[in-house]
């Protein structure tokens, strides 16, 4: 039987989710642990969708995605400090992320592609340093707390609370999980519409050969700028959700390692296919969550003791997966043949 691509990708995603959560269940982990792992999976899928658009479709190397997350998180935090309503913070965060993306893109997108990589990584680091040192605005390393979180009252009483109780989960984390899944789903749907349009076709052409796209009348600078700005939006959304999930906005949450998690996710999931961000996040955060609790037997026990060793195991599994499926979990094998 030959499955369509949609069905095949859906099955891979479902299999990954079942494998990860089945493993949680087999290890006897409770609903609380699963909800927390689910939040990380959904959040990083959202975060990585931006890169899947920028890098996977347009070939733009944005190493500063975490900077856009910081913008989103600090927008809701600062809005609270200023006494503005939460909705303003959300709008401010999205607008600022798109604006900063444009500011980074305008000087670099006409240059060779490596400039964007350098400038975005610098931007994210600078933002974190500014957030640490400009105490008057951000409250510095201590961060911002006590800001309103959406649905907090609604979720902790009434029907949702009893629903959560029946599952054995805390009501608010369960609510955040639902919200994260919803926003990830909506962002995926919106980006999928874009990718499957003539606009998306131009992005792919730019990735393949920008000179050809130009020669065919496409103003590639405009398309690249749009891709950069649009891809920054899920990054900012991630930052907001992260703030709401953990009730804090601190600079240390926005280190560059998070951007590289997203890079791992899109490569692991499969470049060139937005669904790679979803599948990749399930596997990466599933593995990390498992590595934190699995006790390896016998002489391998030391690997499950300390934090760095746990990551070593994650790394080894990732390497094995990439050897087994170099095109990524939902990538197209044929596309590997014609890579640059």
């Amino acid at each position: 039987m030959k499955l369509g691509r949609d069905a095949r990708d859906g099955l891979v995603l479902l299999a990954a989710v079942l494998a990860v959560f089945g493993a949680f269940a087999a290890l006897g982990l409770g609903t609380g642990y699963m909800v927390n792992a689910g939040i990380l999976i959904a959040l990083f899928a959202l975060f990585s969708l931006g890169l899947a658009l920028q890098f996977g479709q347009a070939g733009l190397v944005n190493f500063g995605q975490v900077g856009f997350a910081a913008i989103g998180a600090y927008a809701v935090g600062i809005a609270h400090l200023q006494g503005w309503p939460m909705g303003w913070g959300v709008l401010l965060g999205l607008a600022a992320a798109a604006l900063f993306a444009a500011l980074l893109g305008i000087p670099t997108l006409r240059l060779r592609e490596d400039y964007l990589a350098i400038v975005t990584i610098g931007f994210a680091e600078i933002l974190r340093i500014v957030a640490t040192s400009e105490v008057w605005l951000t409250q510095g390393p201590l961060g911002i707390r006590g800001f309103p979180r959406p649905g907090l009252e609604w979720a902790t009483q009434g029907a949702w609370a009893s629903f959560a109780a029946r599952l054995g989960a805390n009501p608010y984390p369960l609510f955040v999980l639902a919200l994260a899944l919803l926003l990830t789903g909506l962002s995926y749907a919106a980006l999928a519409l874009l990718v499957r349009s003539p606009w998306g076709r131009v992005l792919k052409a730019i990735r393949e050969d920008e000179g050809v796209a130009e020669a065919l009348g496409k103003d590639t600078f405009r398309f690249k700028l749009q891709a950069l700005a649009i891809g920054a939006l899920p990054g900012a959304l991630f930052g907001m959700l992260f703030a709401w999930a953990y009730a804090q906005v601190v600079p240390d949450n926005f280190t560059t390692i998070n951007t590289f998690y997203a890079v791992i996710i899109v490569v692991l999931g499969g470049l060139g296919n937005l669904r790679g961000a979803l599948a990749g996040s399930v596997v990466l955060w599933g593995l990390i969550s498992l590595a934190q609790v699995v006790k390896l037997p016998g002489p391998l026990a030391f690997l499950s003791q300390a934090g760095p060793a746990q990551y070593l195991v994650v790394g080894l599994v990732l390497i094995a997966l990439m050897m087994f499926r170099p095109q990524g979990l939902v990538g197209r094998r044929e596309e590997m043949l014609f890579g640059k």
């Binding site: 349009s197 003539p198 076709r201 393949e208 050809v212 596309e335 014609f338």
Partner: peptide, 30 residues
């Protein structure tokens, strides 16, 4: 210079001038 990881049909469709769907909003609204 073929756009290698796009189909032959996509390569040719791409070149059509004046495509409405190359703008962001119309692209999303299909």
């Amino acid at each position: 210079r073929a756009l290698a990881r796009m189909t032959v049909l996509e390569n040719v469709c791409l070149a059509a001038p004046g495509q409405h769907g190359e703008r962001v909003l119309p692209a999303m609204l299909r």
